[in-house]
Computed example of a mutant assay.
Amino acid sequence: MKNIENGLIELLPRTDRQRLLAAGGAVDVTLAEVLSQAGEPTRHVYFPMDGFVSLISRVDDHPGLEVGMVGREGMLGVHVALGVPVAPLHAVVQGPGTAFRIAVSPFRRELARSAALQRSLARYVNVLMAQLAGSAACLRFHQIGPRLARWLLMSQDRAQCDHFHMTHEFLAYMLGVRRVGVTAAAGVLQAGGLIEYHRGELRVVNRAGLEAAACSCYLADRRIYGLSIGRAPGPAIDAA
């Protein structure tokens, strides 16, 4: 089997890890693929390896808003570990790649057998709760430019690459703002030499500059992960 490069799985003792891996398998996840829908029964949980998934909240007839992101640092379907059979949020692939997928029944069986997996997921729930709460505060108090820089850094950390395919329409959808606002914010980042953007292809060219431009929520997310679980995805930072 392909080496499973997921932070939560890597934390497991060898025996627990082998049992879990024997119960599922690696799958490709494609751009815009819907992995779960709010209110629907969950059939599989996913441990992303080199792609990432947006957690989207929808209210009435309004467009969805991204409130969280799951990549190789975490797991999609953590509600199953809490005994909840239905998903609370929509989950859509925004960074294509691969993920380790396991059906709910064998996952629950392995969860019951592995105290280490229980501990890791309990800590990851804390990380995810902090990310969801932070996203709400970020939307209320921070401007589009710093929020865009934060989103690009989070995506780069999880995709493990500098290049992305994304349109201004998509970014506006994820950030819950008008397209014109994203266009202006991306233009500022590009003029500052932090990113390059052309016809839907975006490249991060100055990581340090992008970190300086991002709102404080980016480092807050990474610190809570470091304090709860260990080293966050992407460049190492001080978790203190």
Rank of each mutant, 00 (worst) to 15 (best):
L76P: 04
I195C: 03
A22E: 15
G176T: 04
Q160R: 15
A236Q: 10
G145Y: 11
M1C: 00
F107P: 01
W151V: 12
V70G: 02
Y218H: 15
S216C: 10
R207D: 06
Q190R: 14
G181S: 12
E40A: 15
V45H: 01
E40C: 04
P85E: 14
V27E: 12
S57Y: 04
D221I: 04
E211Q: 09
V205C: 03
L194F: 06
H168I: 04
A240C: 08
T42M: 14
D162V: 11
R108V: 00
S120L: 07
G95H: 07
L148N: 03
L152P: 06
V86Y: 07
T167D: 13
A116S: 15
K2W: 03
G83E: 10
V127H: 08
G74S: 07
L35P: 03
R123I: 00
A185V: 06
L227G: 11
L128A: 10
S155H: 13
G209F: 05
R179C: 04
T167L: 10
V188G: 03
H90K: 03
D61K: 12
A112E: 13
V34T: 14
A115D: 11
Y124F: 15
H163F: 09
L132P: 00
Y124Q: 06
A214F: 11
F141L: 09
S135V: 03
N206E: 10
I56W: 03
F141K: 05
L171R: 03
F47H: 03
L31E: 10
A103T: 09
G64C: 07
Q94H: 12
A116V: 07
A214H: 08
H79R: 00
L189Q: 10
F170E: 13
Y218C: 05
D50P: 01
G68D: 13
F52L: 12
L148Y: 07
A130M: 14
T30S: 14
R158H: 10
V182G: 05
Q131A: 08
V177H: 08
T98N: 08
H79D: 05
H79K: 00
D16L: 09
R14Y: 03
H168T: 11
L189H: 09
P85A: 13
Q156R: 13
F107G: 01
G134D: 02
G24F: 00
F164G: 01
N206Y: 04
G83C: 08
G74Y: 06
M69A: 12
E10I: 02
L210P: 04
I224E: 10
L148I: 06
V78K: 01
V78R: 02
N206C: 08
R113G: 00
A240R: 15
P85W: 09
Y124D: 06
D238E: 07
S135N: 09
L111Q: 13
H62N: 00
P146H: 09
G64E: 08
M174E: 13
A122K: 02
A22L: 13
R140M: 09
G51Q: 05
C138H: 10
H90A: 04
G209Q: 04
H142V: 12
M166Q: 14
G226E: 05
E169N: 05
A23S: 15
A116Q: 13
G64Q: 06
Y225T: 12
A32D: 14
H163W: 06
A220K: 09
A133E: 14
R119T: 07
I237N: 03
